[in-house]
Amino acid sequence: MKKSLLIVPLLLLAACATQVKTAPAPDAAMSQRSGVKMETLQRGHTVYLSQCGRCHQHIMPADVTKSDWHVVVPGMAWNAGISAADEKALAAYLTAAAH
């Protein structure tokens, strides 16, 4: 009896858990749509995964407009000490993935 009483709250907790979002991995369609080379998109995705979550929670590319990414990325890249080449790749990835 006691075990069945514990199962109900656990099931309710599981039902309320938020689904974890993941940023889209670069693919051929993203590259073609954006006109950005796959190599650049992959580099930007790697920078996104390795650097952007160091200071704050990852923000999904589609949650910010393309024009806003162009404003946000330079400041964040400077704060994080990201190289100019990585900043450029990151911006390319975020704007391509924001589609």
Rank of each mutant, 00 (worst) to 15 (best):
G35C: 09
A91L: 13
K2I: 12
A29W: 01
R33K: 14
T22G: 00
C16W: 11
L49T: 14
D68R: 14
P24D: 02
A92R: 01
V47A: 10
P61D: 06
A98K: 04
V64C: 08
A89C: 06
R54Y: 01
A28T: 12
A17C: 12
H99M: 09
A84N: 02
D68S: 14
T22D: 02
I59P: 00
L10R: 10
P61M: 12
I82R: 01
V64W: 05
V8F: 14
V71A: 11
M1R: 14
Q32D: 08
S83V: 03
K37V: 07
R33A: 15
P9Q: 06
P26N: 02
D68I: 04
Q19P: 00
S4H: 13
G53M: 09
K2V: 14
A17Q: 13
E39L: 11
K21G: 05
A23P: 02
Q57C: 00
P24A: 07
G75K: 09
E39W: 00
H99V: 00
A14D: 01
L13Y: 05
A28H: 09
P61Y: 05
R54K: 15
T40A: 12
M1P: 12
H70P: 00
L11Q: 06
R33E: 13
A92H: 04
V36F: 10
S4M: 14
A80E: 10
L6V: 08
T18N: 02
P26G: 03
L94V: 12
C52A: 06
V8E: 06
M76D: 04
G53L: 11
A77L: 08
I7L: 15
Q19M: 08
W78D: 14
A25W: 00
A92T: 02
G75T: 06
N79D: 12
R54M: 11
G35D: 07
T95P: 03
H45C: 08
M60N: 07
K66D: 10
L11T: 11
V8T: 15
A23K: 05
